[in-house]
Design a protein around this nucleic acid. Structure first.
Length: 205
DNA sequence: CGCGGGATTGACT
DNA sequence: GTCAATCCCGCGT
């Protein structure tokens, strides 16, 4: 059994935590089923001054978890039909979170497939293209069975937690601007706070 | 209380 | 490449 990461792991500056999250295994135990994937893309949202961060206008009912201690899940609804999972970073009262944008599935893959099919609009027939299980923040929440009820979950608990994985060398981490931001974010739009790696680096390459 | 918009996705031209 | 789905949030009134 892999080592579950303790609260100590989360106590790091947000960008550093984002680097350390890459390559770890995110595990959910929802409905007594275990599903897990290796984190391969994350994004940093940090501080009220960050115009892309949900805390940009101060504390609200939605973002309250971001103002709490690190190591908790901040989950919100987006576009009325998807959810996004974040991991709270930085000390209490400093709002910051790491958006989990993509996983490489490693466990419970049939469950993930079932949840993704059930979650599709229209409950339609077979997918036209390949069914992406956990690439994309909305998709991975579906695959892991996460929704608003898991907002505020302690990531050292039994429902949603991390297991140690391979720590990536900093030089193998790709840095890019965050995805999906508008010009209203000003220069914050271009900060290279999207972190990812090429999965083949962990497949033996 | 109304209204604009969103850290997305999937279907379609 | 375009565009609709779908609804909660957060702000202005």
């Amino acid at each position: 059994m892999a080592r579950k990461l303790s609260n100590r792991f989360f106590r790091a500056p947000a960008v550093e935590l984002a680097e350390r999250l890459l390559g770890t295994i995110l595990v959910s135990r929802v409905g007594s089923v275990r599903t897990a994937g290796r984190i391969c893309e994350v994004e940093v949202y940090r501080g009220e001054e960050d115009r892309a961060c949900h805390a940009r206008n101060g504390p609200t009912p939605r973002n309250r978890v971001m103002y709490g201690p690190p190591g908790f899940a901040y989950i919100y609804v987006i576009y009325g039909m998807y959810h996004c999972l974040n991991i709270v970073a930085e000390p209490r009262s400093y709002p910051a979170a790491i958006l989990i944008r993509a996983l490489d599935p490693v466990e419970g893959i049939e469950t993930m497939r079932r949840r993704r099919l059930r979650g599709r609009r229209g409950h339609g027939g077979p997918p036209a293209g390949a069914l992406e299980l956990a690439t994309g923040p909305g998709r991975l929440c579906q695959a892991l069975g996460l929704d608003r009820r898991h907002d505020g979950t302690d990531l050292t608990g039994e429902t949603l937690f991390l297991e140690a994985g391979r720590r990536l060398p900093r030089t193998s981490i790709e840095r890019a601007p965050r995805v999906g931001l508008t010009e209203a974010c000003g220069d914050w739009r271009f900060r290279p706070w999207n972190l990812s790696y090429r999965p083949e680096l962990l497949d033996g390459g």
